[in-house]
Design a binder for these strands. Structure first.
Length: 495
DNA sequence: ACGTCCTCGCCCATCCTTCC
DNA sequence: GGAAGGATGGGCGAGGACGT
């Protein structure tokens, strides 16, 4: 075995930790004490796209697969083959919700064709400044178009479901993963921040290992503390999901354009105010405060041999921070750089490759959960009640919610299945749909006159309905009451 | 028993949104 | 930019519920 092959085996061994059983399962082995879990290995990018590969349930089999191109370095609870037809079967089970343990974080940097730089010491983009220290990757692999850095945890992070059926460790692991990716992205434009956090990555092999550092492994507690401190400082004013603030100011082009001396308008080209505008948009998209941008603009202008008039400076700034733009447009950046900073090459085209989720008003279609919120408001505001339920006709709901019939039915099914609503349907003539939230049911139980005070107290107090002396009516209402989940409605949504 | 009004399930082409 | 997955919306027929 060559030095490199040994390195690949070592790397794979380290990443796997001891989550999977060491030896392959042999017929007759006791199953009871075996560690259960699965990793997926795929050979070749084409097979990756088709999810064609192998499920590995022991360290031995994963190690025997070294040489394959891709794997899931994190461990799932199980893996399955789904039969497509007689000849083909595809992998399933590599979904987030099925993760058993997280052993490492991986960041992928992908360059456009022909632009991948030689790997060298100058590539320090993978070093991440934590609270106390700088974290370097434990493993860097070369890929056809870039590099992948592995940050290996000192011990596996186990993913367990809590009482509410959520996976809290997974949520914070995703935060950490995003934080690492954003930190790398701040130094390298080509970082793939959108990739699946715990999916397939390049598998260490004799040919692709560029660097290995096994001195220190990160502890998850340390990473978590760091990512949480970032969240606090970023103080994401809008409670949006971690789309990752687009950092455009730590890019090579920003530095180059900030330092460039831009002369007045040449024949039709982009000039001073376009350059400044682009720089300010970059600051806006990078969430820099207006005051910082203003100061930057003045300093930048002062450095110019031919500065802009104060008035134009102000209007450019106001325009960039007007909220009408999301950030600097890379096509502009490209053009500006070719004119004023020829040394800098800009990769990519058009937008910074991020689709921003459109607001509901801008969309033609709504999502089911958005209808759901509407329906909660509608139901709670309704005065036409039957047994604590709001009464609607399908047509009325279609009209009021501006929803199609089929979608309405799907909505009701979904909300009923998830326990948000109690839904009762009455078919036929004078048919109707009755819906109630748990809040409505509670209110009903408190106030309905058919229940005497004793019954009411019991219903609200009783945890285990079998313990109460129930009337049939009470049983029915109790069942509804306790199967419903509390309803949470975003406060900004008023129907 | 019958007509009418209503829900519901299924089909399917098309459009929309999101992800990579 | 392309693919995947989801939502939409129109149509049709089955079948429940009600009034007559």
């Amino acid at each position: 075995m060559s030095f490199n092959e040994q390195a690949a085996v070592d790397a794979v061994t380290t990443i796997m930790h001891d989550v999977l059983e060491k030896q392959r399962y042999c017929k007759g082995d006791a199953l009871a004490n075996r560690k259960i879990g699965a990793m997926f290995v795929v050979n070749g990018k084409q097979n990756l796209g088709k999810a064609r590969g192998k499920i590995m349930t022991s360290q031995e089999s994963v190690l025997s697969a070294v040489g394959a191109t891709h794997w899931t370095p994190n461990v799932f609870r199980y893996g399955k083959y789904r039969k497509l037809n007689q000849h083909a079967k595809v992998l399933t089970g590599h979904e987030e919700g099925n993760l058993k343990a997280i052993t490492c974080f991986v960041v992928d940097v992908d360059y456009p064709a022909g632009e991948k730089p030689e790997y060298g010491w100058e590539i320090d983009c993978f070093d991440v400044q934590l609270l106390q220290r700088v974290m370097s990757p434990n493993l860097v692999l070369g890929t056809p178009h870039g590099y992948q850095a592995y940050y290996i945890l000192d011990e596996p992070l186990w993913i367990k479901r809590n009482d509410q059926g959520k996976l809290p460790a997974l949520i914070s692991a995703k935060m950490v993963s995003s934080a690492i990716r954003n930190a790398v992205a701040a130094k390298n434009d080509h970082t793939d921040v959108g990739a699946n956090h715990f999916g397939f990555f390049r598998m260490p092999s004799a040919d692709n290992i560029l660097e290995m550092d096994e001195d220190t492994y990160a502890s998850f507690a340390e990473l978590q503390e760091w990512s949480m401190s970032l969240q606090k400082t970023a103080k994401n004013s809008d409670g949006d999901e971690p789309a990752g603030p687009r950092d455009q100011i730590h890019t090579a082009w920003f530095k180059a354009l900030a330092a460039a001396d831009v002369d007045a308008m040449k024949q039709g080209g982009l000039a001073r105010n376009n350059t400044l505008f682009t720089l300010l948009l970059a600051m806006y998209s990078s969430k820099q405060p207006l005051s910082t941008a203003s100061k930057f603009a003045e300093e930048w202008n002062a450095r110019q041999t031919d500065p802009l008039p104060k008035r134009e400076l102000r209007s450019t700034l106001a325009s960039a921070y007007s909220g009408e733009y999301q950030g600097a447009e890379l096509s502009f950046v490209k053009e500006l750089c070719t004119q004023y900073a020829p040394g800098v090459t800009i990769h990519g085209t058009g937008h910074a490759w991020k689709h921003i989720k459109r607001s509901r008003e801008e969309r033609q279609h709504s999502h089911l959960d958005e209808w759901g919120v509407d329906l909660v408001h509608l139901a709670e505001a309704s005065t036409d009640r039957v047994n604590g339920h709001a009464r609607f006709g399908v047509e009325q709901l279609e009209r009021d919610l501006k929803i199609g019939r089929r979608s309405l039915m799907r909505l009701l099914d979904k909300m009923q299945a998830s326990g948000v609503f109690s839904v009762q349907r009455k078919r036929g003539r004078n048919g109707c749909i009755l819906v109630a939230t748990s809040r409505m049911m509670e209110e009903y139980v408190r106030t309905d006159k058919r229940l005497n005070a004793q019954e009411r107290r019991e219903m609200l107090k009783v945890k285990n309905q079998q313990e109460a002396e129930e009337t049939p009516f009470m049983v029915e209402q109790l069942n509804l009451f306790y199967t419903l989940k509390p309803v949470e409605v975003p406060p900004n949504q008023r129907y």
